[in-house]
Amino acid sequence: MAYGCIVNMATKNMSDDVIQLDQLLELDKVIHERVRLGIMSALSASKKLTFNDIKQVLKATDGNLGMHLRMLEKHEYIEVEKKFVGRKPQTSYQISEKGQKAFRHYICIIEKLVSELK
């Protein structure tokens, strides 16, 4: 909630319907994309998910999902664990501390935006 005041300042003199906040208030670009937002939401609700678990929840394709997961990994928002289950490789993902903070920040801003719009 520490970010609330920034949002407050930013939204005060804007029109009711449309807010050009993006420049003022970096809505985290890493999270602000549909698939990546989905990944972060799913991982924030469960401790650890495999690639297939995430795929099932988000109904995304392998390539697309892989790309977004790599991006989140690059920014250290998620931690990756690779192991073998029998002969099959299995990759599972977990939200990192940095990712958790970023996600909370993102939600915080969204929350604020909603309350400003009401």
């Binding site: 449309v18 807010i19 937002l37 989905g38 929840v57 939600i107 719009l117």
Partner: peptide, 22 residues
């Protein structure tokens, strides 16, 4: 980001969380 987009985002987060926990 406009109102619709925000509400959509929130609903999406809610859906993802509930479908990964229920």
């Amino acid at each position: 980001m406009n109102k619709n987009e925000i509400v959509q985002n929130i609903n999406y987060i809610k859906n993802v969380i509930s479908s990964s926990t229920e």
